[in-house]
């Protein structure tokens, strides 16, 4: 009788060890690059969402320069194009599946619009597949990180801003010296957690031929027709990457919050 897992199948995997090792390198590289892109994108997006750019504010003022209370002019005056764009981006990226986004970026943007040079680096990473994967995942995590940053900043007690502003500090100085130093401490663990999420989510890039851990599984399946055992190996690898990372984050989170029990 065939059992679910056949131990001798694992020994058949040994010739493919290097494939899995390369997959690990690709997955880790992919995650690091993605978080880097996502982080920078999120900085820009959250700055846009919280900006106070009101190009039509004058429509909401009366002849003496007072803010009017109601009317079409007031509504248009409160329109912030930067915040609108950033919000639209975040909502679209958060409301569509990653696998669709990856496909659109790979086949759409880099397939039809932009030609990527085709070369390999590190000896086995194909740039023309790796790069679109990073861009797509980075764009996606940028949207999520933006929300993390925004909520982290907005979680700081409003009294802090009031105190800073009442001392004559500008909105920028308030952000720079009062809000961000406190917010970053709240946000860092969430950003680190996003890294763990990306390690797992990056598996989706095998659909566009990025040779990560998941694609190693498929390669082995194609060559040997064994499925369960390589999948178990992949499961173990992903677990070994993610579990220690999240434990490490939890450890630092506890250490950081030690100082400020209120």
């Amino acid at each position: 009788m065939n059992s679910f897992i056949q131990l001798e199948n694992f020994s058949k995997l040994t010739p493919y060890t290097s494939l899995f090792l390369q997959g690990v390198v690709v997955t880790v590289m992919l995650s690091i690059c993605t978080v880097a892109i996502g982080f920078i994108l999120a900085l820009i997006l959250s700055a846009m969402r919280m900006s106070r750019v009101y190009p039509f504010a004058f429509l909401g003022l009366d002849a003496e320069g007072h803010q009017r209370e109601k009317g079409l002019g007031v509504t248009i005056g409160k329109f912030n194009p930067l915040a609108f764009l950033a919000t639209a981006y975040v909502e679209i990226l958060r409301s569509t599946p990653v696998i669709v986004q990856v496909a659109v970026i790979y086949y759409g943007v880099f397939g039809a619009l932009i030609d990527l040079p085709s070369f390999t680096f590190f000896g086995f990473i194909k740039f023309e597949r790796f790069f679109p994967g990073v861009v797509a995942l980075g764009m996606n995590s940028g949207a999520y990180l933006c929300e993390i940053m925004r909520s982290g900043i907005q979680s700081i007690d409003g009294g802090q801003t009031e105190a800073a502003r009442s001392l004559g500090m500008s909105q920028y100085q308030n952000m720079r010296y009062i809000i961000l130093p406190q917010a970053i401490k709240n946000i860092l663990p969430a950003i680190a957690n996003e890294f763990v999420v990306i390690i797992k989510e990056s598996a989706i890039t095998y659909t566009i031929g990025v040779q990560d851990i998941m694609s190693a599984v498929n390669a082995v399946r194609g060559a040997t027709f064994i499925i369960i055992e390589p999948l178990l190996v992949a499961t173990a690898i992903y677990f070994c990457l993610c579990f220690p990372t999240s434990k490490l984050i939890a450890y630092f989170e506890r250490r950081m919050s030690r100082g400020d029990r209120r």
Partner: peptide, 23 residues
């Protein structure tokens, strides 16, 4: 333009919940 930051410098404010900067 009325520069509110300038005027606020001349008005000190003390709040019910102190609002010291904890960091």
């Amino acid at each position: 333009k009325v520069n509110m930051d300038l005027h606020r410098q001349k008005m000190g404010m003390v709040f019910q919940h102190f609002n010291l900067f904890p960091h």
